[in-house]
Structures are given as C-alpha cells and as structure tokens.
C-alpha cells in the first residue's frame, strides 16, 4: 500500500468450540496477547465449515481465512477436522482459479488448553497475510 498507513489484515478464524475457541479463552486468562484483528467465528466443529463459508469471508472483506480445529485424531465428531482440511484444499483451488494466492486459506490445529499455541498461530497468520498484502478480492481494493 502506498498510503504509508500500516496494513492491518482482516483474518477470519473459524474456531472449533472444542479446541481453538477454548484455547482463545485460555490465552485470555493467561494474559497472552494475540492480534486484535482476528475475527473469531464460533463453530460447533471444524466439519461445520463449508467451502462456501470460506469464499463468503473473502466476499465480505477478509484478507485471510483460517480454520482452527482439534488435533488430528482428537475431533469430537471423529472426521470433522479431516473434512475441514479437504474443504480448505478445495477453497484454495477455487481461489487459485480466480488468480488469488491459495495461501490465504489454511487450516491449523490446537488443543483446548493451549492458549500459547493459539496466540502463536494467530501471530504467524498475521505475519503471513501481511506479507501477502491486502486481498485483491476486497470490494475497494
């Protein structure tokens, strides 16, 4: 950006209520800071996230999207995180077709009590999206 104003990416994080959402709380309790520009969406399971939800996030101005799920093998609905992973891949492919860097969508896992990991992941994501710059799909990009 040429405005000189620092780019503050908008990241939508779909957080599984059984893991990442609790981890966010844990981070808060432990007073571990994480980026404020992460918009958390509370979901009952990573498997609830549809490819379309990911695309809609971009339509509504997200610069990046992450699905924060339970560790592999720890999904409360057995296959939810596996399905989410497939949908992330699918969304990546759809974005690449449009000409958008597929790295703007990813999936990460987290344990419910691991507040520090949650914060670390959020920082990493923010750094990555900052590097990629604002989404070319923003309405007034």
């Amino acid at each position: 950006m040429t405005t000189g104003v620092e780019f503050l990416p908008c990241i939508v994080a779909f957080c599984c209520v059984h893991s990442a959402y609790q981890a966010a709380d844990a981070a808060g309790r432990m007073r571990i800071p994480y980026p404020e520009n992460i918009i958390m969406v509370h979901i009952p399971c990573a498997g609830r996230v549809d490819t379309l939800h990911i695309l809609r996030a971009f339509e509504n101005g997200a610069d990046g999207v992450v699905i924060l799920a339970c560790h592999e093998g720890a999904c409360h609905h057995i296959l939810g995180n596996i399905r989410a992973k497939e949908r992330v891949e699918r969304a990546n492919a759809l974005l690449r077709e449009i000409g958008v860097d597929g790295r703007r969508v990813e999936m990460r896992t987290c344990a419910p009590n691991d507040g520090s990991r949650f914060a670390r992941v959020c920082h990493e994501l923010e750094e990555k999206i900052k590097e990629l710059g604002p989404s070319p799909l923003r309405k007034h990009a």
């Binding site: 549809d50 490819t51 695309l55 971009f58 339509e59 077709e97 449009i98 799909l137």
Partner: peptide, 17 residues
C-alpha cells in the same frame, strides 16, 4: 444447490478481482 452457491460466490469474486 451447493455448487450453485460456490460458483456464484467464485464468479462474484472473480469479477471483483
């Protein structure tokens, strides 16, 4: 229905791009 939703969204994004 699902593919309609995805393609519509993808096209809207592609036009915007």
């Amino acid at each position: 229905e699902k593919e309609v939703g995805i393609l519509a969204s993808q096209l809207r994004l592609a036009f915007r791009r």
